[in-house]
Design a binder for these strands. Structure first.
Length: 712
DNA sequence: GACCTGCTGCGGGCTG
C-alpha cells in the first residue's frame, strides 16, 4: 500500500534491495509524509529503519529541478553524517541528485562546488549552520533559501539542552530565508510520551507537528551481579566474571568514567592473553584519539567473524553504526533511565533476537539504583525533559550572530527578529531592549548612526573559533606540586587561585593557574576545607530515588538478581527496616547520633543540591553524599527543625537575593554556562535558578516531610 | 561520582 505511493526510482531501489516488506515505522511514515504536509517526529528504537522511513517518501516527493538545496539533513555528530552519507547516496542512486557533506572535517572543494550550483541533499551540523550565517550570509540564502524539507536526526539528543535551543533558533532563522513553509521531520529514540511536546517545540510549530511512535521493544534478558569493591580498583572476581561472560561474543561494556574504561580494557586483555583468548579488546571514549576510535568502529562493523569487546563511555550510545552486538554490560548504575534505554538498544540488533543485558554493581547503593532504573525501564518511565522558558544566554549568542549576519540593523529590526523567533517567545520585548542596551554599554554591540553593528569587544567574540557552539569543552590542565605531576583535571570555572581541589586522594590549594600552558600549581591544603559542592556530578532524577525507597520498603523478590545481589538488597532492607515509613512520598528516615543528623532524602540530585544551598544561607553547612541521597547535618534534630522552618518561609525575592550573593562570591559559577557570563547579574541569577536548582521540588518536599527515627 | 557534542578563513610550505 505504502509502496505504491513511492516514486518509480525509489520503488526500483527497494526492488534491487530485495526488501520483502517495509518496517512498521516506514509504512506509517511513507503514507503520511506523501499525503500530508505536516511535520512529523518518527520515534522508534535504534536500527528500526528511521532514516529510510523519512527519506523514501521525501525523495519521492521532492522536485529536484528547483534551484537551491531541497533537503537539509541535520545531525548532532560528524560521525553520523559520514555514516548517513553512504546510506543516503545509495537511496539516491536512481535519482541523479547530489548529496553533500558539510561539516568541519568535510572537504572544502566539495563545499565550494555546492556553492556554485546549490542543489540536492545537504548533510550538516548545527555549528556549521551557525558558521554559515556568521561568515557567509549571502551563501546561506542561495543555499538554504528554497528548501522543501529539513530532517533532524537523533532529535532527542537536542531536547532539554542548550544545543537544542541553538538549533531551534537556527531553524527559525532558516525559515525566515524561505518564502514557502519548510516541512520538518525529526528522527528520535523513544523518549516518553510527555517529552514529545519538547520535540514539537524544537521543530517550532506545535500544531502542525505529529508524532509517529513504534512502541515495539526487543525482549531483553537481564541479570544482576554483585561484586563488593573495597578499593579504588575493581575486584578481580568482577573482572574474571566479566571476561567469562564476554570472551565469546561481540560485547559492549559501559562503566561510567573514562578511567574505569581504561582499567577494564587493559585488565581484560591481560586475562585474555593469559588464557589464549582473542586480542580484540578496545577502549573507546572522548580522550582516545579520533582515528583510533574510527578504526575500532570499523573493526566492529566489518569484521563479521571476529568476537570483540569494546569498553566505552557514552561515545557509543548514539546511533553510530557498529554492526551487530550480542551483549551489553553496564558496570555500576547508569545516571538515568534514558541512558539505560539507549544502551540496552545497542544489543541484539538482528531481527527477532533477544537483547542480552548484564548489570554489575560494586556497592550496595549503586546496585539499588541500578535495580530502580531497571524497574522504571520496564514501566516505560523516562526522565521528563526540562524546559527553560527564558534562555537569555542563548538569546545573547543569537543576537550577536544575527547582527553579524545582517551586517548591521536597527534596534527595532533586531528586536523584531528575536521576538518572532519561537525560541525566545517567553522573553519580553523590554528584556530584549534592555539586553541590547546593556550589550552596547559593554561594547559587545555598537550603535552607529542608528545602526547596530558588532562592537570592538564583540568582534573578538564573534571572530573566535569558539563562537559557533553553545557548549564549552573541557581542557585538561596538568596539576603539579613543586615540580611533581599529580594528575590531569578538566579546566572548570572553579579552577582559580585559592580554590581547593581534590586529587589523588589529597586536598590541594591552587596557588597559580597558567591558562596558556594549561598548568595548575598547587600546595597541600592546610585548612582541610573541602571543595565546594558545585560541580558536575551525575544528576539523578527524583523518580529514580523514589523507586529506590519503594524497593527498600517492600519485600518482593527478583528472579534476575543473583544470590549475592539479592543478599545485598536484603541487607539494605534490614538497615531500613526499623523506620516506620508509610508514605513513600514524604516519610524520610533520619538518624540522630552524637549531636549530628543523617537524613536520607531519597530525592533527586538537583533537589539535594538546592537544600544544601538554602541551608547555607542560614549558616547551616550541610554535607551531601548524593550517591546515597544522604544529607549530613552537623546539628541536633531540634536545631535542624528550626532552620528548616526558616527555609520554607523564604520568599522568591529573598531567594533571588541569595543567588545574587552567591554569584558575586563565586564568579566562576556562571561559567558553567558558556554565554551566561556576558549577561547582567539579574539575568545570570534567573539562569542559575532555572538550570542548577529546583526550588519548587525543595518546597514540596520540605513543607510536607515527615522525619522518621529508627524505632528498633 | 560523569559523560558527550563542533569549528572559519587565511597564508605559507609542500607535492604532483
Amino acid at each position: 500500500m505504502s509502496y505504491q505511493l513511492l516514486s518509480e526510482p525509489i520503488r526500483k531501489f527497494i526492488r534491487n534491495k530485495r526488501w520483502e516488506n517495509l518496517r512498521p515505522i516506514q509504512a506509517a511514515a511513507i503514507s503520511r509524509i506523501i499525503e500530508t504536509d505536516n511535520n512529523y517526529v518518527l520515534a522508534s528504537r535504534t536500527s528500526s529503519g528511521k532514516t529510510e522511513a523519512a527519506f523514501l517518501p521525501i525523495l519521492s516527493k521532492v522536485d529536484f529541478n528547483r534551484p537551491g538545496v531541497q533537503i537539509l539533513y541535520i545531525s548532532p555528530l560528524i560521525a553520523l553524517i559520514n555514516d548517513q552519507f553512504f546510506r543516503i547516496e545509495e537511496l539516491c542512486e536512481n535519482l541523479e541528485i547530489s548529496v553533500t557533506k558539510w561539516h568541519g572535517e568535510a572537504k572544502k572543494s566539495l563545499k565550494n562546488q555546492l556553492l556554485k550550483n546549490p542543489n540536492g541533499v545537504l548533510l550538516i551540523t548545527p555549528e556549521s549552520i551557525e558558521a554559515m550565517f556568521v561568515n557567509a550570509p549571502y551563501n546561506v540564502s542561495s543555499l538554504l533559501g528554497n528548501l522543501h524539507y529539513i530532517v533532524i536526526d537523533e532529535i532527542h539528543s537536542f531536547l532539554g539542552v542548550d544545543r537544542g535551543l541553538q538549533l531551534m533558533s537556527l531553524l527559525s532563522r532558516i525559515q525566515r530565508l524561505n518564502k514557502e513553509r519548510i516541512i520538518t521531520i525529526g528522527l528520535s529514540a523513544t523518549i516518553g510520551d510527555e517529552n514529545y511536546y519538547s520535540a514539537k517545540l524544537l521543530i517550532g510549530d506545535v500544531d502542525r507537528t505529529k508524532i509517529l511512535i513504534d512502541r515495539t521493544k526487543k525482549d531483553t534478558e537481564v541479570s544482576f551481579k554483585y561484586f563488593k569493591s573495597e578499593s579504588v580498583e575493581l575486584p578481580l572476581s568482577l573482572l574474571k566474571e566479566l571476561y567469562k561472560e564476554t570472551s565469546v561474543s561481540k560485547a559492549l561494556i559501559f562503566p561510567n568514567s573514562r578511567g574505569r574504561v581504561e582499567e577494564i580494557a587493559v585488565k581484560l586483555l591481560k586475562i585474555s592473553s593469559k588464557v589464549g583468548g582473542h586480542r580484540n579488546y578496545f577502549a573507546h571514549h572522548s580522550s582516545v584519539d579520533k582515528e583510533i576510535r574510527e578504526s575500532i568502529e570499523r573493526f566492529a562493523k566489518e569484521k563479521e567473524h571476529f568476537n570483540f569487546c569494546i569498553t566505552c563511555t557514552s561515545t557509543l550510545e548514539l546511533g553510530i553504526d557498529i554492526g551487530t552486538i550480542d551483549k551489553v554490560v553496564q558496570v555500576d548504575s547508569t545516571h538515568s533511565v534514558a541512558s539505560l534505554v539507549q544502551r540496552v538498544g545497542r544489543s541484539g540488533r538482528r531481527e527477532g533476537e533477544m537483547s542480552l543485558l548484564s548489570l554489575y554493581a560494586t556497592n550496595e547503593w549503586s546496585l539499588l539504583q541500578s535495580l530502580a532504573c531497571w524497574k522504571l525501564y520496564q514501566e516505560d518511565f523516562l526522565e521528563p525533559i526540562k524546559i527553560i522558558q527564558r534562555p537569555y544566554d542563548i538569546l545573547f549568542h543569537q543576537m550577536l550572530s544575527i547582527v553579524k549576519q545582517l551586517s548591521g540593523c536597527s534596534k527595532k529590526e533586531l528586536n523584531d527578529h528575536l521576538r518572532s523567533n519561537p525560541t525566545f517567545e517567553h522573553i519580553s520585548s523590554e528584556d530584549i531592549d534592555d539586553l541590547i542596551n546593556q550589550s552596547i554599554k559593554s561594547d559587545y554591540l555598537e550603535s552607529f548612526e542608528r545602526e547596530l553593528i558588532i562592537g570592538v569587544t564583540g568582534e573578538f567574540i564573534v571572530n573566535s573559533r569558539e563562537f559557533y557552539s553553545v557548549f564549552s569543552t573541557e581542557l585538561n590542565f596538568k596539576v603539579t606540586h613543586s615540580g611533581k605531576v599529580i594528575g590531569n583535571i578538566p579546566y572548570s570555572p572553579q579552577v582559580k587561585k585559592d580554590e581547593n581541589i581534590l586529587l589523588a586522594a589529597s586536598i590541594w590549594k591552587i596557588k597559580d593557574v597558567d591558562i596558556k600552558g594549561a598548568k595548575i600549581i598547587v600546595v597541600p591544603a592546610k585548612d582541610g576545607k573541602k571543595p565546594k559542592f558545585f560541580g558536575r556530578t551525575g544528576s539523578i532524577h527524583k523518580r529514580v530515588r523514589a523507586e529506590m525507597l519503594r524497593i527498600l520498603m517492600n519485600s518482593e523478590g527478583y528472579e534476575y538478581l543473583n544470590v549475592e545481589s539479592h543478599d545485598e538488597i536484603d541487607k539494605l532492607r534490614a538497615d531500613f527496616n526499623g523506620f516506620n515509613i508509610k508514605d513513600f512520598e514524604y516519610d524520610r528516615p533520619v538518624i540522630e547520633k552524637e549531636g549530628k543528623l543523617e537524613v536520607y532524602t531519597f530525592t533527586g540530585s538537583e533537589i539535594n543540591n538546592t537544600i544544601v544551598f538554602l541551608f547555607k544561607c542560614f549558616n547551616c553547612e550541610l554535607h551531601i553524599d548524593d550517591s546515597k541521597s544522604l544529607i549530613e547535618v552537623p546539628e541536633t534534630l531540634d536545631r535542624f527543625g528550626e532552620v528548616l522552618a526558616q527555609v520554607i518561609k523564604l520568599t522568591q525575592d529573598e531567594i533571588h537575593d541569595y543567588i545574587i550573593d552567591e554569584l558575586k562570591a563565586n564568579e566562576g559559577l556562571i561559567g558553567f554556562y558558556k554565554w551566561g557570563k556576558y549577561l547582567p547579574l539579574e539575568y545570570q541569577a534567573y539562569l542559575l535558578r532555572e538550570k542548577m536548582f529546583d526550588f519548587e521540588g525543595v518546597f514540596d518536599l520540605l513543607t510536607k516531610i515527615n522525619l522518621c527515627e529508627n524505632e528498633i
